[in-house]
Nucleic acid binder design. Structure first.
Lengths: 221, 221, 221, 221
DNA sequence: ATGTAAACGAGACGGTACGTCCAGTCTTGAA
DNA sequence: TTCAAGACTGGACGTACCGTCTCGTTTACAT
C-alpha cells in the first residue's frame, strides 16, 4: 500500500469543511463512514482553544484532548495546525461575521466597517490573528485563509462598491482592489499591531477618512 | 545563584541594541567585557536565518549555530525569540528603510509609500512578517515592535502630515492616527495576507486613493 | 453488544487452526458462512510476513494487507498477535518438521536432532524465535506454544527415549524431562542467542556429547 | 551542523556502561560534562521497570518517567530500547550473578549450574528473557547481549572446562563450545519456554545428566 | 604578577509537542 | 452472520527545540 495522498478532501487548501454535495446516491464507499460528531467536536475544540489559550497554547494535542479525539483523527482530515485553525474558524467563528445590506453603499460600507472593527477587536480577532500568524510559517495556512475566507469576502465587498459606483455614489475611476485594501487593510493592521484601539469608534473614523477619497463629490467640510 | 535578574539591558522591551552611552568611566565592572563581535554575529545571523528560512526555520539553535555562538550567549542578552528577531531587524534591516524629505507633503507621502511598499514586498517584509507573527504568541515581542519601531516611525510620518496641514495641502480636520492607519495599514495587510502583489505600482495607487480623501480640494475628476 | 465472548474457537490457547470437523449437517447456523479461503490466506500471510520481515514487521495490519483481509476478520478468529503467529506457524511451518522413526533409539535421536537443528537454523527458526519472543510479553502466546507445540513434541520424543531404555540402549535411571531439556534446549538456545552456528554439523556434535551421558555403556574413547 | 553520528559511546553494541578508563588527563572535551547521576538513575529505572512490568511495560517513556529524566537523555546515550535494557541489566543485575571457584571442576560446574538455574528462574531471568526477546526484533540488541554478556561468560566457563580436562576429570576430546551449549542451553530454554520449573533441583539433575557424558569415567551406576 | 569576576563556546539536561505507526474497537454496505 | 474497508480512540515512538544548567577557557579589571 503506497498511494500517499489517500484522498484528503481539498488537499490544496485543507479546508474541506463543506461536504461537497455527496455525489448523488450510488458511489457510497465501503468502510465505516466519517464520524461527523467527532469532526464537529474537533472544530469546536479548535476554536475554543484558540480563543482561550491563543496561538501559543494551540497545539494539536490540546485540541485532541479537549475534543476527546485521537491525534490521528485530526491528522487524517487536516494536514496541519494552520488548516485546523482555519477550519475551526470557518465553522465556528466566521458565521458570526455577516454582511449587511442596507440602502446606500456609503452607509452600507460604514456600517460594515464598524461591525468588522468591533468583531475583529474581540475574541474572533484573536483567532484570526493566530491564523495569520501561523500562515507566516506555513504557506498552506495563509493560502487557505486567502482562498477560503479573504477572497470570498472581498468579492462580497466588491459588489457593494460596484453598486455604489452604479448609483453614482462613488467615483467611477476607483481601483476596486486598492479600495478594498484601503478600507479593510487598516483593520487587520490594528488587529495584528496594537498601535491603538480597534473598536467601532475608530472604525467609523476610518470609514469617514477613506470613503471621503472614494466619494463622487467629497465634502470639503 | 544570588541576584536573579542579572542586569539584562532594557528588560522591558528586550531591545538593547543601542549600547546606551556607557555611563562615563567609573562603574566599569570587573570581569571579561562583552564581546561586541559576538553580538554582531548573532544579530546578523538572526536576520539571515529569518530571511532565508523564514519563521519556521528561525530557531535559537539555528541562529547560534550560524553565528558560531553558544545558546547561552543569546539568552544572556535577549529574553526571547521575538526579542532576538526584533533586535536583528533593527540593527540589520531597519536602517535600510529610510525616510524621504522632499518638498510637498503629498509628494513626500506618495514617495514614502512607494518606497515602503517596495521594501516590505521583499526580504525585509519577510523579516517583519515573522516578527509580527511571533508577536501574536508573545506579547513582549509585539510590544517591542510597537514601541521600538512602529511608534517612532508613525511619529515621523505624523510630522509630514502636520506639515501638509500647515501648508494647506491637507484638510485640517483629519485625525492623524486614523490617517496613518489608512496610509500604512494596507501595506502591512498585503505583507501579511497575500491577496495581491505588494509593489511600487500598487503602493502608488494606494497613495492616490487614500490621499484623495485627505487633500484639501480633492479632484472630482 | 450482547455476548462479549462471541464464541472464539479455543479462546484459552487461541490455536483453533483445526476446523474441528464442522459438526455434520444440522447445526448449520444462519448468515454468511465462514470463508475458509480467507483463513488460509491470513495464515499464509502471517507466516510469510514473519519469515520475510521478522518480528519487527509482523503487525496485524501488515498481515491483513498481504492477505487482502480486514483486520476485523483476524481479530474475530485470533485473540492476539502471538496467537496469530502460532496459528500461522502450526499450519504452514510445523508440518515440515516431521519425526523420523528409524531402528535404534540412538540413531533415531541423532537423526532427529540433526534435522531439527537444520530446520530451526533456517526460516522456520525465525518464525519460531518470533513466537517465543512474543511469548515473553504475552503469556497467552507462550502458553499456546507450550501446549500446542512444545509438549506434544516432547511427548513424541519421550516415546523414543522410553523405547531406548526398554531396548537397553539408554540408562534406565535417566530423568526423561531433564534428558529432553538437555537434548533440545541447546538448539533453542542457539536459535535465540547466536553464540555460534546452528546447523547439522553442530547438532550432530551436540547429539554425540549429550547422548554419551545417557547411553548404557558410554565409550571412554 | 550535519555530522550524524555524534560520538555515541561504542555505537556498535550500545553498551557503553564502562567509562573506558578516561584517556589519561588531557582531552577533556568542552561543554557540560555527562551527568553520572542521571545515567545511574536511568539504568536503575530500566532494570526496575523490566523486572516489574516485563517487556510489555518497558517503554522508553516509562523508564524516563521513573528515572526523572528526559527521553532525549536516554536517546543521547543508548541507541535503542534493547541497548538500554542491556545496559540496565549489565549494571544492575549482572553483577549479582558471580562465578564460583571451588576445587574440582565437576563440583564447580554443578554448583555454577545450580546457581545460574536459581537466579535465572527469578526476577533476573525475566529481565534476561526480555532482552533476548527484544533481540529477536532488533539485531543490535542480540549482538550486544552476545558480545557483552554471553561470550565473556562462556569464556569464563570454558576455563573451568579446560581445567577439568587438564586435571583428568573431563574427557580430553570434548568440543568445548558444544559442551557449553549442552550445559547452559537448557537453562535458557526453560527460562524462555516454560515446559517445566527452573530451579536448583532441576539444575542439579541437568548437571548430573550432562556432565555424565563429559566425565572421563562415567559411572554406570 | 596575580587573583577574581564576568562572558564565552560547547553541550548535557528535563521537558513539550511534533507527526507517525499500530493496536484494538466499531460501523457500514455487500455477499 | 461474515467479510473488506476503513474511521475511531489511544499509547508509544523517535525527533526537534526549548530554556536552563554546568563545564573549562578567555579576557580584563583590581589588587
Amino acid at each position: 500500500m503506497t498511494s500517499a495522498a489517500k484522498r484528503k478532501p481539498s488537499a490544496a487548501t485543507g479546508l474541506q469543511h463543506v461536504p461537497q454535495a455527496r455525489a448523488a446516491k450510488p458511489t457510497r464507499r465501503a468502510g465505516r463512514q466519517r464520524d461527523e460528531t467527532a469532526q464537529r467536536a474537533i472544530l469546536r475544540a479548535a476554536s475554543e482553544v484558540l480563543e482561550e489559550k491563543g496561538m501559543a497554547g494551540f497545539t494539536i494535542e490540546a485540541v485532541a484532548a479537549r475534543a476527546g479525539a485521537g491525534k490521528t483523527t485530526i491528522y487524517r482530515w487536516w494536514p496541519s495546525k494552520g488548516a485546523l485553525a482555519m477550519a475551526g474558524f470557518l465553522s465556528e467563528t466566521a458565521p458570526k461575521i455577516s454582511y449587511a445590506n442596507g440602502r446606500s453603499a456609503l452607509a452600507n460600507l460604514t456600517h460594515q466597517l464598524r461591525r468588522v472593527g468591533s468583531v475583529y477587536g474581540g475574541a474572533s480577532g484573536r483567532v484570526l490573528s493566530a491564523i495569520i500568524a501561523e500562515g507566516q510559517r506555513d504557506p498552506a495556512t495563509i493560502t487557505a485563509f486567502v482562498e477560503g475566507y479573504a477572497k470570498p469576502r472581498r468579492a462580497e465587498a466588491k459588489k457593494i462598491l460596484l453598486a455604489g459606483i452604479e448609483r453614482g455614489e462613488l467615483r467611477p475611476d476607483i481601483d476596486l482592489e486598492v479600495a478594498l485594501d484601503a478600507l479593510y487593510g487598516p483593520i487587520y493592521y490594528r488587529m495584528l499591531v496594537p498601535v491603538g484601539p480597534l473598536d467601532e469608534h475608530w472604525a467609523e473614523a476610518l470609514a469617514a477618512h477613506v470613503l471621503n477619497g472614494l466619494k463622487k463629490q467629497p465634502t470639503a467640510t
